[in-house]
Amino acid sequence: MNSKNLLNTFVELIRRTSSDLPVDVVSAIEKGLLTEKRDSIAHKTLQMILKNIDIAREKSLPMCQDTGTPVFYVNYPAKVSQIDIKKKINQAIKESVYKLYLRPNIVDTLTGKNLGDRTGPGYPVINFEEWKKDYIKVILMLKGGGCENVGTQYALPDSRVNAVRDLEGVRRCILDAVHKAQGRGCSPGILGVCIGGDRVSSYEESKRQLLRSLDDRNKNPVLGKLEQSIMRDANKLGIGPMGFGGRTTLLGVKIGSLCRIPPSYFVSVTYMCWAYRRRGFEYENEKVKRWLY
């Protein structure tokens, strides 16, 4: 593997992810702007957000100063070494801090010390999966801290939201999560949801749902209907951009499900802020085959 090319590609991936919001997200924000009343605070807020997105792209600088936890999803053929890829990612992060694409964003939890341009356990997050295709696919999500903090998990039945183990119960949990997230996660937000799994796999799948394009359709019609219902109702809550009031509370809802064991029924919600930074590439024969999103 030509290590220089792959390293540069990872740095370019981080630059694009941090400074240039994908087109499906920008269109969803623009669509939101059209539903808000002119001169309302919601309208002005979305306009400012769109202006911010433009400046970040032009300057190749972080659209949000919290460049988040870098979460990588890597599919690779059997011949590729995970250790090699990991090394490249760590090097690329160092370079990206130097180039201001990333904030020095890692702290030793026990000493409180900022580790600068280094990486460490838990940062970045890399999900590896071998596959049968003969190229590498990488998706990067920069997951901000404010919105990560409002992610939540319900174990049904949950009397706090009067939810039993059915889709109506799931619906109540998700709407409750949107209500509780207001102000802390920067709305308009996007939800990744998983029904089922164990505590860990359920959260993991809820985050993975955010890899879907905002304009896709759920392959499962039952979940598709639930997504539409949540979108409709959440945007009736009146929370609006940044919680100032308005019609645009959510830009999207993506729901998946995993099998579970009979004692457990989890509903896990990952909240993504409007700065929904995800980009990807496919890499073959020492060069980028195509950029994703």
């Binding site: 109506e168 619906r171 709407l175 219902s229 109702d233 009736k236 809550l237 009146g238 929370i239 009031g245």
Partner: peptide, 19 residues
Amino acid sequence: TMYERSGAILNSLITKGGL
């Protein structure tokens, strides 16, 4: 104010059911 107002709407949406 916003938290209380949206909380009241949430309660009515839950009571009504939506699926």
